[in-house]
Amino acid sequence: MAITSIKNLKEFSTNNDRFEGAHTLCPGCAHSMIVRELMNCTDDNLVIAANTGCLEVSTAVYPFTSWDTSWIHIGFENAATAVTGSEAMYRARKKKGTLKDPNAPVKFVAFGGDGSTYDIGFQWLSGAMERGHDFTYICLDNENYANTGGQRSSSTPIGATTSTAQAGSASYGKKEKKKDIVAIMAAHGAPYVAQLAPNKWKSMAKGFQTALETEGPCFINTVSACCTEWRFDPKDTIHITDLATDTLMFPIYEIINGHELNILYRPKNVVPVEEYLNAQGRYKHLFKPENKHVIEKIQSDINEYWDKLQRREEARI
């Protein structure tokens, strides 16, 4: 029995957690907020694979598992491959009639961090999307390789300092722009692609449910604020995510069938990006006078991208 709609938080809270505590993610990590929400928004059986990353190593510390569903610990790149393989086997066994309970609803989900989604597992993910399996891929985007000490990934935004793109007298941190993974996945012609954030729990739960219900490959990029590598106090995870969505650093939107773009959240007051940058230690150096142009560049990129999204929403292309 699938939960079809969640009216309010009180109703949502009656669902039983299937992601257990005592995992070893950092206090205040947004990863577990996102994973909990996915597993709470459905009653269906879940088959989950996770790429190597914070989530994988922290939820399966031998001899413990934090998962109350089928879950596989797999390599850095191939959660998409593992879960689509399971899905293919499920379909084959259903056809042959060898399943114990063929009517039980099963959903296939892969989790990956941004390192394994934007970089290392990109080829595997692209292949799985192209093959058209019925699965949902969720990227927990914390903009760096947090598990191994905060190296830059192709998701790291311009201007952020990381352990391999450090800010100093000669550099202002990472110089390249963030890869637009949502547009790339939409270009695969996927039936449902979205970018969501845990502070907007309702649109997130709705997005997850849509992705699970949609037949075919779905991709969701979620903003996962990382208190360790973004350098803010763990208690501010939701506040930072609020700033990320209100400054439009992370616009929340969905793309259906590769062309129907819907913006899911329009901030009443768009906050200047300085506030978001100022709240995090990784952007501290941008407030030196010589780096002022980087902040201006970030703001103009955001404006340009927001404009593009709105035009795409209107034109349906």
Binding site: D17, M33, R36
Partner: peptide, 9 residues
Amino acid sequence: NCWVWCPDS
């Protein structure tokens, strides 16, 4: 609110 955003269930 605390239930939905608690990272540790």
